[in-house]
Simulated assay, not measured.
Amino acid sequence: MEKLIKETEETLLALENVFSKFDGHLVNKVPFEGSWTAGQLAEHLILSNGGFLQVINGTVTETDKPADLMVSQIKSDFLNFNVKYNSPKEIYPENKAYNQPELLENLKQIRAGISNAATGLDLTKTCVSYELPGYGYLTRLEAIYFVIYHTQRHVHQLKNIYSGLNPN
């Protein structure tokens, strides 16, 4: 459990730290063709991770499988940087100007919520308010690992966006 809490905190803090390196005007600048802006990427993670926080805190049932059954598959899928995924429309960020301090505050609130869930809830329960395409209903443990690996994937992309905007 300590490993999960530490990995959650480190991953979500890494996102905030990388995102905070962007100068205000660069947050909404497209670094290269086909890329989101840093602001769009942060908004995508707010929508996704915030949604998962609601799922984790939502309706649950008893679990009839190992609580970590899907963790290795989620890790394998999301940390394979050679595969490009299309975002579901529900968590696809708008093409607009984003406010960096506001996004950072939302990211911090979500980090606190995920950390509270990881330390205070029974992570073996199955979340039934949302069925994740390709994975099914996740346990709270699997949902937290989804947040971790999905965020790690996007931290990697955020670093690429930063490099694209700051070639030095």
Rank of each mutant, 00 (worst) to 15 (best):
K75I: 03
N160F: 01
I46L: 08
E102A: 09
S129C: 03
L138G: 05
G120Q: 12
T126C: 03
G113K: 14
N166Q: 11
V155K: 13
V55D: 10
V55L: 08
V27T: 14
A42Q: 03
A97Q: 14
L41E: 08
F78R: 15
N86D: 12
E94T: 10
N86F: 02
Q40A: 06
K84L: 13
Y85E: 14
I74D: 00
E62F: 03
G51N: 05
G164N: 07
G164T: 10
G24Y: 05
E43A: 12
N116I: 08
L123S: 13
I148L: 04
L138K: 11
K75S: 04
F146D: 14
S35L: 05
L141A: 07
V155G: 05
Q100S: 12
Q109E: 13
L138P: 09
Q100F: 00
K29E: 15
Q157M: 10
D68N: 09
D68A: 01
I114F: 10
N116Q: 12
C127I: 07
L103A: 07
N17V: 10
D68T: 01
T59Y: 11
N80G: 03
V55Q: 11
K65C: 07
L158G: 06
P101K: 01
L26H: 06
E16G: 12
A97W: 00
L45S: 01
Y92R: 11
S48G: 12
S87Q: 04
M70Y: 06
F19A: 15
K65D: 07
Q100E: 10
E16V: 06
